[in-house]
């Protein structure tokens, strides 16, 4: 019976921790803790810690909610599965954002210090950006939306600076097999937010521009009304590209950053002390450089959201 580790399991046979390989290490770091239903019966093998032999596998019947063991099982779960780690961290960091920003101003003073100062700085920064982009139309939702995006995405990105093995190893000790810590390295998270923004774009395009103007914008450009289908296809590509690029840009940057952290961490696999030390140095360097990317990507996500929504509020002449 093959398992996630690629090891043959025989009940009662001697078992040991699977050997850590470079491929296995990387793959482990890129696999989410996935909760879903497998369409087939699966077995969960456990190594008895006392006798060091394989116990009888626990049989999970088909179509029951379970955690995937390995990326192939996660893929087999299909669409109706949940990356518990990504969404968990996402919700946790969202709560951190709300709590910090809500209670930083509880003790309001006229000479703000520390946290209140920081919070007001963030809000002012976001507000300035919104007001410089949203010149003609006014919408009270855009400010809070942009603030949420910037701070929340920044916090999710910030998890990238936690050394790659710390939290997954802690989770392993708690019996959780996979644990991806940076939500924004999961395309579901970034595209999920982009989807939210996309729905808002459509909503405001229809309510502010009016359905007629919105449709006209999608069909009467760039070739005039006699080539409507061509126009529609071209404009539709343009329109759909907005949320896709928004989500994938963030995902791509963070995924690549995470990947480099993993590769640097791999230097510890070499038994040479010198290379290990170099790994520390590189880790520090990349972390310092990555701070820039983290902040920049959250800022870009926010600014593009504002720009797209501003475009949804503007009516062009046709």
């Amino acid at each position: 019976m093959a398992s996630a580790y690629g090891v043959e399991h025989v009940v009662g046979a001697a078992c040991k921790e699977p050997e850590l390989t470079v491929t296995g290490y990387i793959q482990h770091h890129l696999t989410n803790l996935t909760l879903g239903k497998l369409p087939y019966e699966s077995e969960v093998w456990t190594c008895n810690a006392d006798s060091l032999v394989w116990d009888m596998p626990k049989v999970v019947p088909a179509d029951t909610w379970t955690f995937a063991h390995g990326s192939s099982q996660a893929a087999d779960m299909g669409f109706w599965a949940l990356h518990v780690d990504s969404i968990g961290w996402s919700i946790f960091l969202g709560i951190v954002f709300i709590t910090v920003f809500r209670f930083a101003i509880a003790k309001n003073t006229d000479t703000p210090t520390g946290l209140q100062n920081f919070v007001e700085m963030c809000v002012e920064f976001v507000n300035d950006n919104v007001q410089s982009i949203f010149t003609s139309a006014k919408n009270p939702l855009i400010g809070p939306l942009a603030l949420t995006i910037m701070v929340w995405v920044f916090l999710m990105n910030l998890m990238d600076l936690v050394p790659v093995d710390f939290l997954p190893e802690l989770a392993k000790a708690a019996g959780i097999e996979y644990f991806k810590v940076v939500p924004t390295t999961d395309p579901n998270i970034t595209l999920g937010m982009a989807l939210g923004v996309f729905i808002l774009i459509i909503y405001y395009s229809i309510t502010v521009k009016g359905l007629k103007n919105f449709v006209a914008e999608l069909t009467l450009h760039p070739f005039g009304k006699w080539l409507m289908p061509v126009n529609f296809i071209l404009e539709m590509v343009n329109f759909i590209a907005k949320p896709i690029s928004l989500g994938l840009r963030l995902f791509g940057n963070l995924y690549a950053g995470e990947m480099i952290f993993i590769l640097i961490a791999l230097m510890l696999f070499f038994s040479s002390f010198a290379i290990g030390m170099m790994g520390f140095g590189l880790h520090l360097l990349w972390a310092l450089f990555h701070i820039l990317i983290l902040a920049l990507q959250s800022f870009i996500f926010m600014v593009l959201t504002i720009v797209y929504l501003a475009m949804a509020h503007e009516t062009e002449d046709h």
Binding site: T34, A74, H83, G94, I98, P187, L195, I199
Partner: peptide, 20 residues
């Protein structure tokens, strides 16, 4: 994999934006 996490995140997003 693209899965229901996307929808969940979109919903969570809406909730947090609303709270904010």
């Amino acid at each position: 994999n693209i899965n229901a996490t996307l929808i969940a995140q979109a919903l969570v997003f809406v909730v947090f934006v609303a709270i904010c």
